[in-house]
Amino acid sequence: MPIKVLVAKPGLDGHDRGAKIVARALRDAGMEVVYTGLHQTPEMIVTAAVQEDVDVIGVSILSGAHMTVFPRIMKLLEERGVDDICVIGGGVIQENDVPKLKVLGVREIFDADATTQNLIDGIERVVAEFGRARKRTGAATPAS
């Protein structure tokens, strides 16, 4: 089944050319890509991810707000009882912040030099390693 990815663009970034290029590249790699537009809050991102039941949330962030945005996304996912959606990030993120984000549970960070092929490979690797196929054993679990 195709990997389903939410391409999320939080905060004040003024354009989404990069996000659209990423969406297109992932589409061409056979993924189903949900795109929700600019200026998304962490709440909007998590709501969309839950309703769309994506495998991966890919957060594109250039504004420097990553140390606020990622912790908020991780907390909201936890509050909503979701532990099988992988969160990854890309954009302008200082190298010494990367380990802190990984401690929060962010699975992968791509720097500004990453190619779209790096992204595709990275997403496939993260899904294979941490994705829900491992957590959901072939059937929906009845509501408790």
Partner: peptide
């Protein structure tokens, strides 16, 4: 490629904070 870009939510994002609204895209 079987890939898809699902972009219909873009027009409906203002309802995101409303728990009376559920939006799902399908390829």
């Amino acid at each position: 490629t079987h890939g898809a870009v699902l972009g219909d939510r873009v027009r409906m994002q203002r309802h995101s904070g409303d728990t009376g609204v559920f939006i799902r895209s399908m390829a």
